[in-house]
Design a protein around this nucleic acid. Structure first.
Length: 767
DNA sequence: TGACTGTGGGTTTTT
DNA sequence: CCCACAGTCA
């Protein structure tokens, strides 16, 4: 096979491996995608039918890239290979089999907002305290349960989970979960996790021998980024390949060191279980890194060696040394952004690097702002990934909600969203009543709409009129062309007029946005294979509005790659996985940020952060710059944290320190007590001459700090000040608006400090 | 019923 | 700092 010539021995062996379960452990930059695509190309060349090949990825982008690369080698046959994300492929199967599960084929896919909003309603209806039952927390708990294949029944009988809930003082989570499942069912809706869970149910309950059908269909299954699969995903895979007479063709590629989705249920136990479940598993290790220069690879190895739990492998490179890793120490986040922008300019001048080879990574999306500001100032073109995507904009969601109820009128969340927008005289209290009736009759919101007693005639009429409109649209879904129907809906709903009435620039861009949704639908219908629809198949492509809607929900803005322009990339470290850049900045390398404060207590969490950092630095091909700040705006306040511990895990021989005063290692040493995060309430002596704002309070204590109101500061109480530490209030005097407190701080050489309460932030510790 | 204001509370990563 | 929500006013 001539296309095999460019591969090294291990890659070649993996690509041409015989039938049977196969695991490829692939370090960063080791040609993982290459192996996967060539494997598929090789199978095709061996005469395997393309539609018997299934390839599952985590992102649409990865799937798309895979398809392109296969077709590069194999031409058109690639189009008939099933390649897509777990979610999109499964949605496709579920669409075909929905009736077997008691769902309409036009089922809605609830996105995170829909889930949250439904949960909010449920929590309210159950009269639970929304403070205690925080929607986000409840949602992720339920999601985690689903990822671990725990139905509400299983959850209820699981002592460990129930005990955890009781300890968290949230004993009713399981009841919310149960209710939530019922409501999704009544609304003909599945959330992201349901796309996996319902598929599992389908394969387990096996109505009409559907399991056999898919076992036959998918003779060769491949999984990319296997370390990111959760228990449920592995359970599905196992069900598909483990049976008598199966060739067990599960070919997975992954890297335990790059597992960064444990928080949403991914578990590298799947790799271990894979080896255990299939004793004749063939394992290949790709250890040569073709991407990065020596310093980067060596630094990455040093970092990851701090994690205990990992599969043994040695990543190496034969690339020349070239640049060391640059370390920028900055005073503020403002300066950080400025210096990054300046450095980009300098690099561009010196090395002529195109923008698309440059990326700025950060731990949290909120950090992007400052960089945007300074890139704009330097006239550098950039693109921010993550954050609000096109399909999350209000006007777009509104139109999509209309389309959703046309296709699937029982979709409760979509209905609630638009039933009174534009206003139709259907009030909030009316909606509440409908919800109540739906609950009592255990029917859908849609059905309940006609059965509400004691509402005004006006409301009744409005509801009836709206239902008629929706039914008319629904009728058209099977007759009219999807984009024509969408246009009609946009107009007849009144949405278009409402948007046009707003003549402000923002208002006009809203109009443009809804119009471009219509365009996207037209494109979808007219067969230009959109980035969204990667899953090719032997059967005719489903061009229905329902198919479009289900696809659209699974898109993120990383997917609409308008890569026609040459722009600098700004994104979170998570979304950078799988990508590579000649010139890379990893920013905000500070304790409590990277590693995140959420993970600082839990060693597993810390290991995951470390893997995340590993992923971050291994994205760089040549020029890697790490930055950190002494002071950073967070929660609207200036906070200061020591440099990230991860910086100290890289040997100084790989660094070139730039700017600031002293190395990160020194900075770290100075605050040793603080930087290992062990001391929670520790207060260390004031140290001067080290930056404008010097905190004596440990990072953890700072994170826990919350200022008390001025009234609470009275003589005798013990207070905490971020700069001076713990102290006792001696007296308070002055006018109401200018109260001055005399405070004796423990770690202080002056007898008392006079603090103007209006400006100072003090937390009362005890009174 | 809708728009506006203030307040209070939360801030990780994504299909 | 920013958002979402609650409560108030027109």
């Amino acid at each position: 096979m001539d296309f095999l010539t460019g591969l090294n021995d291990v890659q070649k062996a993996a690509v041409t491996a015989a039938d049977g379960p196969t695991l490829v452990i692939a370090g960063p930059g080791s040609g993982k995608t290459r192996v996967l695509t060539y494997r598929i190309a090789w199978l095709l060349q061996q005469g395997v039918a393309p539609d018997q090949i299934l390839t599952l990825t985590f992102t649409n982008k990865a799937a798309k890239e895979m398809k392109e690369r296969i077709s590069h080698v194999m031409g058109n046959a690639a189009n008939r290979v099933w390649a897509g994300t777990f979610h999109s492929i499964f949605a496709r199967i579920l669409r075909a089999e929905a009736s077997k599960l008691g769902f309409p084929a036009t089922f809605t896919v609830y996105d995170t907002d829909d889930s949250s909003s439904l949960l909010r309603s449920i929590i309210q209806e159950m009269q639970l305290d929304p403070q205690v039952y925080n929607v986000g927390a409840v949602r992720s708990r339920i999601s985690l349960a689903k990822s671990n294949l725990m139905t509400p029944q299983v959850y209820r009988s699981n002592e460990e989970w129930m005990t955890q809930d009781r300890q968290q003082k949230k004993p009713f989570i399981v009841d919310i979960y149960e209710k939530y499942m019922q409501r999704c069912k009544l609304a003909g809706a599945m959330d992201f996790d349901d796309l996996l869970l319902q598929l599992f149910r389908l394969l387990r309950d096996n109505p009409d021998n559907v399991l056999e059908k898919y076992r036959k269909k998918f003779q060769y299954i491949h999984v990319d980024e296997f370390q990111d699969t959760n228990f449920l995903q592995y359970a599905i895979l196992r069900r598909l390949i483990k049976y008598d007479g199966s060739k067990e063709n599960l070919f997975v590629v992954g890297d335990d060191a790059q597992s960064i989705y444990a928080f949403r249920g991914a578990t590298i136990d799947n790799i271990i279980d894979f080896e255990r479940d299939y004793p004749d598993l063939k394992v290949y290790k790709l250890e040569q890194n073709y991407r990065s220069t020596h310093h980067i690879v060596a630094a990455a190895n040093q970092v990851i060696s701090h994690n205990k739990k990992q599969l043994q492998k040695t990543i190496w490179t034969d690339k020349n040394e070239r640049q060391k890793i640059k370390l920028l120490k900055c005073l503020t986040d403002d300066e950080e952004a400025k210096r990054v922008a300046d450095l980009i300019l300098e690099y561009k001048n010196r090395y002529h690097i195109p923008n698309q080879e440059i990326a700025i990574l950060y731990r949290t999306n909120a950090q992007s702002r400052k960089f945007e500001e300074y890139l704009r100032r330097q006239n550098l073109a950039y693109r921010v990934f993550g954050g609000m995507s096109f399909y999350q904009r209000k006007e777009v969601k509104d139109l999509v909600a209309y389309l959703r109820i046309a296709v699937n009128p029982i979709d409760e969340e979509a209905m609630r969203r638009v039933i009174n927008y534009p206003t139709r005289g259907i009030s909030d209290s009316t909606l509440q009543k409908i919800g109540k009736v739906a609950n009592q009759l255990n029917c859908s919101f849609w059905d309940a709409m006609t059965q509400v007693p004691d509402i005004t005639d006006r409301a009744k009429k409005s509801i009836a009129a709206f239902r008629t409109l929706v039914l008319k649209w629904q009728e058209q879904t099977t007759k009219a062309n999807a984009s024509q129907l969408a246009t009609d809906i946009l107009r007849q709903s009144g949405l278009f007029d409402t948007l046009k009435a707003d003549t402000s620039p923002e208002g006009q861009s809203k109009v443009e946005n809804v119009v471009s949704v219509i365009d996207a639908i037209a494109e979808f219908v007219n067969g230009e294979v959109p980035a969204a629809e990667i899953a090719g198949a032997d059967e005719v492509q489903d061009k229905s509005l329902a198919a479009y809607l289900q696809t659209v929900t699974l898109l993120t803005d990383a997917d609409d790659n308008k890569q026609d322009t040459d722009r600098i990339t700004l994104m979170s470290v998570h979304s950078a996985k799988g990508l590579e850049y000649q010139c890379l900045f990893v920013t905000g390398m500070e304790e409590q940020l990277f590693p995140s404060f959420m993970s600082s207590e839990d060693p597993n969490g810390l290991d995951e952060e470390r893997r995340l950092f590993y992923v971050a630095i291994t994205r760089a091909k040549e020029l890697l710059t790490l930055t950190y700040c002494q002071n950073r705006y967070r929660y609207g306040q200036i906070r200061s944290f020591p440099p990230s511990r991860f910086l100290e895990e890289i040997g100084p021989e790989h660094f070139e320190i730039s700017g600031g005063f002293g190395s990160a290692r020194n900075a770290g040493r100075e605050q040793e007590v603080v930087s290992n995060g062990a001391r929670v309430s520790g207060v260390t002596p004031v140290r001067r001459n080290n930056g404008p704002i010097q905190s004596t309070v440990s990072a953890a204590a700072q994170a826990a700090f919350s200022a008390s109101p001025a009234e609470a500061i009275v003589a005798g109480v013990t207070v905490l000040h971020l700069k001076f530490g713990k102290g006792t209030v001696l007296s308070v005097e002055g006018p109401k608006d200018g109260k001055i407190a005399a405070i004796q701080f423990e770690q202080d050489d002056v007898p008392e400090r006079r603090i103007v309460l209006k400006f100072a932030k003090l937390q009362v510790l005890e009174s």
